[in-house]
């Protein structure tokens, strides 16, 4: 203000706090009412309709065959994702290679494995046995060095891993490629100018930065994979969760509660994965943001006033 004494201490000036009426949101209350009605209807049905079979679910949810099925599902998911991720990175690097043989063969792989249903691929892997009873490594039309019997080489679990992993690799290849292309060209130039080789640049500079773009869809893929494992019935691999739950359901003539039981397990597992994804994303945001956003636990701590600064 023009009348204020410019030499006055800033602390001396009065700072009346703003006391304003906040904006009202009547629409939100209408929304709450509608949601509450539907929620009440759902709860009522869940509690009073005996056909949900809660008793049965409670009885079977930790049954050994079900828990073992959960274990198989988890192992299958992670191993398939590891195969998919490793092979996907390799394929993405091949796709971006200046060597046409490399980029061409990677393209063909993605074309074939992304272009056919995973259910069909699983079936085909299981039936490689029908095509070749033995697999041998050697010179075509010439002598053979090693010979395998396909029945022992490709048991159901391996067929499931091959089917899920190779299919996933095709998708991961595209995700990783998009991540690599998202990194500023100047990064590669700066590394090259320092004397980095192509692979050193990729490993130390480009891929760590590409991870920010790669991680969210990879989390998505992992969650998707967890559910896709229920398709290995095509092989058939019968130890995984959904087959085991259905088997119990069929035996008891109660398929519906057992499908709910499987859904509860799937939801529980995907929830854990979502939490994991949050922290991985946060890790790779390093350097991209001035300050990392607080974790939910930090947020709660601050709310109740035991965190660091407010």
């Amino acid at each position: 203000m023009s009348t204020a004494d410019p030499t006055a201490q800033p602390q001396a000036r009065e700072k009346p706090p703003i006391e304003a009426v906040p904006v009202r949101h009547p629409g939100r209350w209408v929304g709450v009412a509608i949601v509450a009605v539907f929620a009440a209807m759902l709860v009522h049905s869940l509690l009073t309709n005996p056909n949900w079979g809660w008793g049965l679910i409670g009885e079977w949810i930790f049954a050994p065959s079900i828990v073992k099925g959960v274990g198989v599902t988890i192992v299958l998911t992670f191993l398939s994702m590891i195969i998919g991720l490793a092979l996907g990175v390799l394929l993405a690097i091949m796709r971006l290679s200046p060597n046409p043989v490399m980029s061409g063969s990677a393209w063909v792989f993605v074309w074939a494995f992304r272009g056919t249903p995973v259910y069909v691929q699983l079936f085909l892997w299981a039936n490689v046995i029908a095509l070749y009873t033995t697999i041998s490594i050697g010179v075509p039309f010439g002598p053979e060095f090693f010979t395998f019997d396909t029945k022992t080489l490709i048991p159901a679990f391996v067929a499931a891993l091959l089917g899920l992993g190779l299919n996933e690799a095709a998708y991961m290849a595209e995700i990783v490629r998009a991540g690599i292309l998202s990194v500023d060209e100047g990064q590669e130039e700066a590394a090259t100018a320092l004397g980095f080789s192509r692979l050193q640049t990729l490993r130390h500079i480009v891929l760590p930065q590409a991870m920010r773009v790669i991680v969210p869809p990879t989390g998505n893929e992992t969650i998707s994979m967890l559910k896709t494992t229920s398709l290995v019935i095509a092989i058939p691999l019968t130890t995984e969760l959904f087959f085991q739950a259905s088997a119990v359901g069929n035996r008891l003539f109660q398929p519906f509660p057992m499908a709910i039981l499987a859904s509860i397990w799937y939801l529980a597992m995907t929830s854990v994965l979502m939490v994991g994804q949050y922290y991985i994303e946060r890790y790779y945001a390093k350097g991209a943001m001035r300050n990392l956003p607080p974790t939910p636990i930090q947020k709660i701590k601050r709310r109740i006033g035991i965190g660091r600064e407010a």
Binding site: Q187, E189, I205, Q209, G287
Partner: peptide, 12 residues
Amino acid sequence: GMVFQRFNLFPH
């Protein structure tokens, strides 16, 4: 050694 207009530091 080379120094670029837009720095090109490694942000991570």
